[in-house]
């Protein structure tokens, strides 16, 4: 019963204003389409600049380049949507990549799917540990995953002991995965696309998926609505870990040679991809399609810079500028919407 929060005052006695009632504005994936448009424009422009950009090999490289980052971005989006963050994904991916390779090296006869499942399992375990720490001990995700960023990476280094595992220690069948194509799309990229679509479908069509948005939107209200917030958050972290594990497996398959530094420093690029794709750090907003498109955009920029005769060293600055414009744009749109809908502008 506070009198400060309710926007009241002179009552308009005229005809009803269109405060959100008259014209319904359904949620459309405008944000995702914007990123898609940017990707298309960038690809088209680069192609005009140099048709070699879209040669068979060029497309292949583009696909493969985006694979790992988009899988990671999808996982990160799951966590960000619940208003958490996972900074340990780079380390988890590195651990899985090395773990998968080490398994092949240690047990030469091991079936390929089993080793891959093990790699994903390592990631899932790491994610589960993050989630449990966040949900049960109530430690902020930023702190927990900053800690596990070091711990997982350190564990990986300790395991690898400075060594690396080379392609010849891994079965041909596994390494060939990187070269196989499905309908002209490299298999890893196809896997990534399947992951994006499946996760997107899950988030949109399952109760538990929608509940992730509810939690990020207002955790207190979610609890009042009977949503088991803790369990969902743990699940989101575990899924993110599993996807980071998958990214590690894909990384190993593609490069063939891994040491324990795989994915070093990757966490921030992953968060960047998700944010550029419209997933809000403040939770509750965004789709995995957007996150994946953000990853594609970042990789495409990397690939396009040399063609535009721009020094590759501009890459990171461009990424930074892109993140800032993305959050600035989101903020601007939010403010404009708030103003258009009237009210809600109280307080700071």
């Amino acid at each position: 019963m506070t009198s400060t929060t309710a926007p009241t005052g002179p009552r308009p006695e005229g005809p009803p204003s269109d405060k959100g009632t008259g014209r319904a504005r359904p949620q459309r994936p405008v944000r995702e389409l914007g990123v898609l448009l940017a990707v298309v424009l960038l690809v088209a422009g680069t192609w005009i600049q140099n048709p070699g950009f879209l040669s068979q090999q060029g497309v292949r490289d583009l696909f493969l380049g985006a694979t790992v980052l988009s899988v990671l971005a999808v996982g990160q989006a799951l966590v960000l949507i619940t208003k958490n963050v996972d900074l340990s994904v780079g380390s988890v991916m590195g651990l899985s990549a090395f773990g998968t390779a080490a398994l092949f090296a240690a047990l030469p006869g091991i079936p390929v799917p089993l080793a891959m499942a093990a790699g994903i399992g390592i990631g899932a375990l790491c994610g589960l540990a993050n989630g449990l720490l966040v949900a049960t001990v109530q430690v902020p995700a930023l702190v927990v995953t900053l800690g596990t960023l070091y711990a997982y990476r350190g564990f990986g280094h300790w395991w690898a002991d400075g060594g690396q595992i080379n392609a010849h220690q891994m079965p041909e069948a596994f390494l060939a995965l990187g070269g196989v194509s499905v309908l002209g799309v490299p298999l890893p990229a196809a896997v990534a696309a399947a992951v994006v679509v499946a996760t997107g479908f899950y988030l949109a069509r399952y109760r538990s998926g929608r509940e992730l948005y509810a939690i990020g939107s207002d955790a207190h209200a979610a609890r009042l609505s009977g949503i088991s917030v803790g369990r969902r958050v743990v699940a989101a972290f575990a899924a993110n870990g599993a996807l980071a594990g998958l990214a590690g497996v894909l990384f190993t398959a593609r490069y063939g040679t891994v040491d324990s530094t795989a994915g070093f420093g990757m966490e921030l690029e992953v968060v960047a991809a998700a944010v550029v794709g419209g997933v809000a750090i403040a939770g509750g907003v965004g789709t995995v399609y957007g996150a994946a498109l953000g990853a594609v955009l970042l990789t495409t920029i990397t690939a396009a810079l040399p063609i535009w005769q721009i020094d590759q060293f501009w890459h990171q600055a461009v990424v930074g500028a892109l993140i800032l414009s993305a959050i600035g744009l989101d903020r601007l749109l939010a403010l404009r919407n708030a103003r258009k809908l009237g009210g809600g502008t109280h307080g700071p």
């Binding site: 509940e211 990020g216 939107s217 209200a221």
Partner: peptide, 22 residues
């Protein structure tokens, strides 16, 4: 007096959250 809805969800989802028809 001041309802607690999930601002990021549609009104239909707000009505049915946690018990959507399946």
């Amino acid at each position: 007096q001041e309802p607690t809805l999930f601002p990021d969800l549609s009104v239909a989802e707000n009505i049915f959250i946690g018990r959507q028809p399946r």
